[in-house]
Simulated assay, not measured.
Amino acid sequence: MTVTASARAASPLLDLVRPARPTHVVDVGANPIDGDPPYRGMLAAGLCRVTGFEPQPDALDELKRRKGPHETYLPDALGDGGTHTLHVAATSGMTSLFRPDTNRLGLFNGFSEWGRVREEVQISTRRLDDVEEVDAFDLLKIDIQGAELMVFEGGRRKLAEAVAVHTEVSFVPLYENQPVFGDVDQELRGQGFIPHAFAAVKRWPIAPVVFGGDFRQARHQLLEADVVYVRDFGHPESMTDEQLKQLALVAHHVYDSTDLAYHCLSQLSLRGLAVPDAPNRFLAVLGSANRT
Rank of each mutant, 00 (worst) to 15 (best):
T2G: 09
S6C: 08
A7S: 15
S11M: 09
V17G: 12
V17W: 05
P19W: 12
A20P: 00
P22S: 09
T23H: 06
H24W: 03
G29S: 00
G35V: 08
P37C: 08
P38N: 13
Y39W: 14
M42S: 10
M42A: 12
G46L: 08
C48F: 10
C48V: 11
F53G: 01
P57K: 06
L60T: 07
E62R: 15
P69W: 00
P69K: 02
A77M: 10
A77G: 02
H84I: 10
H84E: 05
H84D: 04
L86T: 01
T91H: 06
S92Y: 07
S92H: 07
S92L: 09
S92F: 06
M94V: 05
S96N: 01
F98N: 04
F98I: 04
R99K: 12
L105K: 01
L107H: 04
W114C: 00
G115V: 03
R116I: 03
V117N: 02
V117H: 00
Q122I: 09
I123T: 09
S124Q: 14
L128V: 03
D129Y: 03
D130F: 05
V131M: 06
E132Y: 03
V134C: 03
V134I: 11
D135C: 02
L139D: 05
L140R: 10
L140V: 12
I144S: 00
G146F: 00
F152W: 04
F152I: 09
G155H: 08
R157Y: 01
A160N: 07
E161Y: 11
A164C: 14
V165Q: 10
H166T: 08
T167W: 04
V169Q: 00
F171N: 02
V172H: 02
P173T: 02
P173W: 01
L174N: 01
Y175V: 02
P179V: 00
P179C: 02
G182C: 10
D185Q: 10
L188A: 09
G192D: 09
F193Y: 15
H196P: 00
F198L: 15
V201S: 11
K202Y: 13
W204I: 03
W204D: 04
I206R: 14
V209D: 14
V210S: 06
V210T: 14
F211Y: 15
G213S: 02
G213I: 04
L222T: 01
L223Y: 01
L223E: 09
E224M: 14
Y229W: 13
Y229S: 12
V230Y: 08
S238W: 07
L244Q: 14
K245R: 15
L247W: 08
A248C: 15
V250A: 09
D256R: 15
D256K: 13
L260R: 12
Y262D: 15
H263F: 14
H263G: 13
C264D: 04
C264I: 10
C264P: 05
L265A: 11
S266L: 09
Q267I: 13
L268E: 11
L268K: 13
G272R: 08
A274F: 13
R281F: 04
L283R: 10
A284W: 11
G287R: 14
N290W: 12
T292I: 13
T292W: 08
